[in-house]
Simulated scan of single mutants.
Amino acid sequence: MKKLIMCLLGLSLASCQQSAPLMQREAKVPAVKPEVVESKAQARQELPVLFAASDTLTQPMREFLAQHDLSALWANEQDSAYPDPSFEGFFGPDYYRFGMVFNKVRRDLTNPALYHVQGKSCYFKSKNVRPFSGKLTVRRLVDLHYPGFLKQRAEQFSSAADSLAGHTYTAYGQLQLQEESQENSGRIEGEVVLDFFIVPGQAPAYVYVFDHDGRDDKLPTRGARLLLRGNRLNLTTGQVKSFLVAPDVSAIAPDLFKDFMLDERMGQINPKYAKLGWNEYWKNDEWWAESPKPFRAL
């Protein structure tokens, strides 16, 4: 488990050759290695550190964030490719099915790097849905070198010149959430990774993969457009468990289970992982809705 988390938290792409001077002036801040020894975190009632304490945003980056509101993208905005607004993936050392959703994301009126978040987490093993609130702070912005992407998406733009003027980026956000106070409620600290592009005159949009398996390991999000990873502290027991979720679970599952998908094209999950909560994956239980359908009995 320790090795897995260290590998996942280490995945990122460096600022590269794309001709976007804004991100080339990124502040150089040493990466902080997370503390992932659960027994020590439990004893201290602390969560592993995922970001350096110092500010990593330059003034041009702050101006960029003031010009471009990323609220809809952080919220996993629904479209024809991703009609489900939730993130799903794995929780704890046994990799049980875990879900999150951001019902509301609002950019702060005075700080363009800060977003206020409300949503819910779902622990499918215990069939437990917990509301949360907190903040998402943009901590890094880098150029994303993904050749040919904007040209491939040219039909989305009003002119070919727009695609040539566009740029692709990756944003890294620090997620700090508190679940509603009750027994075994949790505090969540995580990293949210967003691959997106900007074309003049249009709203920010996702960079993601349309091929049959929806995955590209060259992208920081593996092609799932967003990726969330971090840790949860149980405020009752002091236990710390890690999580990894994305809009497309097939983009992250191979890191844990090479045989998780029997047929990636059809999204068929291997029945041997039913005990982890995946036996009802296709039941369409909208657990994040205000009046969700009840969970079906096992």
Rank of each mutant, 00 (worst) to 15 (best):
Y273L: 13
L226F: 04
D55S: 14
E63P: 02
G99M: 12
P112G: 01
N270P: 10
D69F: 10
D248I: 00
N111G: 01
Q18P: 06
G134Q: 10
L298A: 13
L50I: 13
P112H: 01
A274Q: 01
V32K: 06
D213K: 11
F149Y: 02
G10P: 11
G119P: 08
T58A: 12
R222Q: 06
G99Q: 15
L136F: 11
L228T: 02
V101A: 12
F51Y: 02
R187T: 03
H68P: 02
A161G: 04
E180S: 14
G223Y: 04
K125T: 07
Q45P: 01
S71R: 12
Q24H: 12
S126L: 08
P147M: 04
Y82L: 13
G277H: 07
V209G: 09
E77R: 11
R44L: 03
W74C: 15
P83I: 12
A165I: 04
T110K: 12
L175K: 05
D248Q: 04
C122M: 05
T168Y: 00
F87R: 00
T56S: 15
L177G: 07
S291V: 03
A224V: 00
R229Q: 14
A75I: 03
R44A: 02
S39N: 06
E88L: 09
F149V: 00
K120C: 02
P247R: 09
G99K: 10
H145D: 13
R44W: 00
Q18S: 14
F210W: 06
L233M: 03
L177C: 10
E35N: 05
F87P: 01
V105L: 13
V207C: 10
A297R: 02
V117K: 13
C16R: 15
G190V: 11
R222K: 09
N234K: 13
V207H: 03
D259Y: 09
F243A: 09
R265H: 13
P93M: 09
T56V: 10
F295I: 07
P21L: 00
Y115Q: 15
V192G: 09
R25M: 04
Y115D: 12
L114Q: 13
M61K: 09
F102H: 00
P30E: 13
F196T: 05
S54N: 08
L114D: 08
R225A: 12
S158T: 11
Y172H: 09
W287P: 01
Q174F: 07
D69L: 08
S242G: 07
Q176H: 12
G99E: 14
K33E: 00
M266H: 15
A246W: 02
N111Q: 07
N231T: 06
Q24G: 03
P200Y: 10
R229D: 06
D255H: 03
A297N: 03
T168E: 02
C122I: 05
L8M: 14
E180G: 10
Y172M: 09
A289V: 02
V117D: 09
S185W: 05
F51Q: 00
V117P: 04
T137L: 03
E77G: 10
G267V: 11
D69V: 10
S181L: 14
L164M: 06
K120S: 01
P292A: 12
G148D: 03
N103Y: 05
Q45D: 04
T58K: 10
N234T: 08
Y281G: 02
Y206S: 04
S54Q: 05
D79G: 04
L262C: 06
S39L: 02
A31I: 11
Q176T: 14
Y146D: 05
I269P: 06
K272M: 08
A53G: 13
G186W: 00
C7M: 01
P83G: 08
F243Y: 15
